[in-house]
Design a protein around this nucleic acid. Structure first.
Lengths: 154, 154
DNA sequence: GAAGATTGATTGTTCAATCTTA
DNA sequence: TAAGATTGAACAATCAATCTTC
């Protein structure tokens, strides 16, 4: 039983609190954005993420690179791309340089869906992430989170 | 086509970046902590979260309150508690005051498992969240994330 | 044999419907 | 009728095994 720290929190407790509030902030923002995106555009956040990643990459990406960009399990990505493929938003194309690889690429319908959803997505990010914080929070938040996003030293 | 903002980022872009880096930070920290906890103690993070919530609440909580504390779907919680129950770490007890409600409560084995895992959990949070950030990051990070964790105004 | 990707089987999550008690 | 909780069925995520090409 610690009797020394009955008053005041330790530095360690403050770090644990960062983890707690990080989880809470992420959970709330993701829930709000994904719900509203689904309601407004009938599109799941996971689908938009794929279209967004492909768009940023110029329209196509190898499955492996796409999995990396989305920090997603490769099996999960295979299945997610299956669904997007079935919906006609993404197509798989053979890699001419390496017969083992496949490219996931935006179809015409995929580009249209992306262009249609993007403004709504940006608006929702502003509403659920941009609005709640103040101007002075932006820089320190970004800096701190960036350190956490980098791979761990071990 | 916007030709005005070819140089420099808009304030809106900075807010979107907060969202991007929030997702990345959360994904990495959660992956690292849950993997290491599983490796070190054979316990899933979701299980620890339940034990932790019950411990904080003094050992027992109604299913509904537990779902709230974990920001978790009530069906998912039913199933999660099923598994913890089957493992002997948690028990369901009738609520004497309201026959509709149930309490999930820590069993003796649940308390032991919690006490055994807690130091490891805290160590992993320090390693994967505490270490990567600097002392000066803690306060502004907590403050910013707390604003995001609060329910949205709409 | 190793890399890129998919598949089968298992497990976990979610929605809507249900059951029980207030 | 509504609240608290669970269930069945559909859906998504994950691991290990597999297939194909390098």
């Amino acid at each position: 039983m610690r009797t020394i720290c009955l008053v005041g929190k330790s530095a360690a407790d403050d770090r644990v609190e960062v983890w707690d509030v990080l989880r809470a902030a992420h959970a709330r923002a993701k829930a709000d954005i994904s719900q509203d995106l689904l309601a407004a555009k009938g599109m799941q956040l996971a689908w938009f993420d794929v279209l967004n990643a492909l768009h940023r990459a110029g329209g196509r990406l190898r499955m492996q690179e796409l999995a990396m960009a989305l920090t997603m399990n490769k099996s999960s990505l295979t299945r997610l791309v299956d669904r997007l493929d079935a919906a006609g938003l993404v197509a798989r194309e053979p890699d001419v340089a390496d017969g083992r690889g496949l490219h996931a690429s935006l179809t015409r319908a995929g580009k249209d869906a992306y262009r249609s959803a993007k403004p709504t997505y940006l608006r929702l990010v502003q509403r659920h992430v941009g609005q709640p914080i103040d101007d002075t929070d932006v820089e320190p938040l970004t800096a701190g989170l960036r350190k956490l996003a980098a791979p761990t030293s071990r």
